[in-house]
Design a binder for these strands. Structure first.
Length: 408
RNA sequence: CGGGGUGUAGCAUAGUGGUAGUGUACUCGGUUUGGGACCGAGCGGUCCGGGUUCGAUUCCCGGCUCCCCGACCA
């Protein structure tokens, strides 16, 4: 893409009202635009990052047998009344609205009930199970206090997967599979090293759940980490008996701040019973399906990557989620190599703008595309390109052939 | 939802009961061209409502906004 055609503009300074690093950098680089507190628009560069994250998640969900759907944002209050979660006392972050005739509707913040209801049309027999259904959809939560940039919003894109199994053993097996899948996802987006599966409270669903926590000073959660075993315990359930139950040594645990990038919950039969999601067993008797739910907030993952992978100059995207793979800086005309890179299907942002070199370098540092290629009069006669790795800052002179080898 | 702050140009900031200043961005002209380069000219602003006052961006009241701390958080 030609940078001269990109309608967004970078800024030297972040708006005063953004304090969190992720929002400051993402706004300065024009990845996102703040619409209001906790509500952000994704601009072209930001959407490319978000889509990359989305595709990684989709691939991993499909790999464990997930079937993708798109459920509705407007929700019938009936199914929620059945499970007892319609009441604002029970779920206080509902956004609700009304039809012209006065009937109340919910604006989606989660989908256990509606999906269970839908599946009553399709699940009758033990032969139809187990079943894994997921979606990537915008959720709305009326947070009393939005904060931390795109980390805790009122409107956000979320991947939610729900599993429906015949019994606890079958459920447990899949639950572990999702945990593995999540690990792969966080590895692929570049935060695997510092992301810990964390034992946590189960909220209203169950006694315990597992969270995926990424170490960061910007985190809202406090966790106790066992760095060797790569697991952690959330402060909210931290107690001697829990430490013992997990086979951990209290002295080896280190207190850290972390961002919850994903969570997985066993749901038991609470919602399947409420919605009448029963299946006929081999013995001819009806039984409720055993459910689990598994969420990842895409914006929060993007914000976490921004928070954790950046320096004082700007963002440092891993190749897997970067908006482009190559940032081509044309200090003199670089149209020729741009065309070649495009022809080779390499995602390249070509800075063809008429502005000073310093400005282009600063913008490039800020935007954080992994590989920078500089074309200027300096290397016009050498036939070589200057190649810089954004992460390490390492610079080398390479031939065209070497360039294609590095970025293909 | 409790507490604390905040609001001046697209963005960042200064200042003031009496003509609102600077940087940046933007427009025009010129000089530049490897780290947000320079010179000149120009465009553009006091959150909303009420009150006090001859006069309010400034003081007072109310509202809203956004941020922070806490509470909350499938």
């Amino acid at each position: 893409m030609l940078q001269s055609k990109l309608f967004t503009k970078t800024r030297k300074e972040a708006p005063r009202d953004e304090v969190s690093k992720n929002a400051q950098l993402l706004i300065r680089g024009s990845f996102i635009h703040k619409e209001m507190a906790g509500v952000y628009t994704y601009l072209p560069l930001g959407l490319r990052v978000l889509n990359n994250i989305e595709n990684i998640i989709r691939e991993e969900m499909n790999a464990i047998g997930g079937q993708e759907v798109l459920l509705t944002t407007l929700q019938d209050s009936e199914v929620w009344k059945k499970s007892g979660r319609w009441d604002d006392e029970v779920m206080d972050n509902w956004f609700k609205t009304k039809l012209k005739n006065g009937n109340e509707l919910g604006i989606a913040n989660t989908h256990e009930e509606p999906l269970s209801k839908i599946l009553t049309d399709h699940v009758n027999s033990y032969k139809n199970l187990p079943l894994y259904v997921y979606q990537i959809q915008t959720k709305f939560r009326n947070e009393l206090r939005a904060k931390s940039g795109i980390m805790r919003g009122r409107e956000f894109l979320m991947k939610d997967l729900y599993s429906f199994s015949r019994n606890e053993e079958e459920h447990k097996e899949f639950y572990e599979k999702v945990a593995e899948s999540y690990k792969k996802i966080f590895d692929r987006v570049g935060i695997g090293e510092i992301t810990y599966k964390t034992f946590a409270s189960g909220g209203s669903f169950s006694k315990f759940s597992d969270e995926f926590q990424t170490l960061s000073s910007a985190g809202e959660d406090t966790i106790y980490v066992d760095e060797e075993k790569k697991i952690a315990i959330n402060k909210e359930v931290f107690a001697s008996d829990v430490v013992a139950e997990l086979g951990l040594d209290k002295d080896k645990l280190v207190e850290k701040k972390a961002i919850e990038v994903g969570n997985i919950f066993p749901l038991g039969t609470k919602y399947s019973e409420a919605e009448g999601l029963l299946y006929r067993g081999e013995d001819g008797k009806d039984k409720p399906t055993v459910m689990g739910s598994y969420g990842i907030g895409l914006g929060r993952v993007m914000g976490t990557v921004a928070e954790v992978l950046s320096d004082e100059k700007g963002l440092i995207w891993p190749e897997s989620v970067a908006p482009f793979k190559v940032h081509l800086l044309g200090l003199s005309d670089a149209g020729e190599i741009y065309d070649k890179l495009k022809k080779a299907n390499i995602e390249v942002l070509y800075d063809d703008r008429e502005m000073s070199a310093g400005e282009k370098f600063a913008d490039s540092d800020l935007i954080g595309i992994p590989y920078r290629v500089i074309v200027s009069d300096r290397n016009k006669d050498t036939g070589k390109f200057e190649f810089i790795d954004r992460r390490t800052g390492e610079t080398k002179e390479i031939t065209e052939e070497e360039l294609f080898k590095l970025v293909s």
